[in-house]
């Protein structure tokens, strides 16, 4: 399943999400929305909001470091 993490470099929960996914050996695409305006717009379009981290797992959109939701979406 494709996993995307939209983040900013200064956002601690973004770091935590990425560390968490790595600790579970889940590979993901990290997208820095502070550098990439198009990616920021894409994130806003997909999630209807502008908070980071925004995690997209398949068709599931998760806002914030919600471990439970992430586990559920990944069947962990």
């Amino acid at each position: 399943m494709e996993v995307k993490v939209y983040s900013t470099p200064t956002c601690p929960y973004c770091t935590m999400v990425k560390e968490y996914l790595s600790s579970k050996s889940i590979s993901f695409q990290g997208i820095d929305v502070s550098l990439d305006k198009a990616a920021a717009d894409e994130m806003i379009k997909v999630s209807g909001q502008m908070g980071v981290p925004t995690i997209v797992i398949g068709s599931e959109v998760i806002v914030g470091f919600d471990k439970e939701a992430i586990n559920k979406a990944l069947n962990l």
Binding site: P12, V33, G51
Partner: peptide, 8 residues
């Protein structure tokens, strides 16, 4: 700190 960069 988290969301600031989105408001460029």
């Amino acid at each position: 700190t988290c969301d600031g960069p989105l408001f460029a």
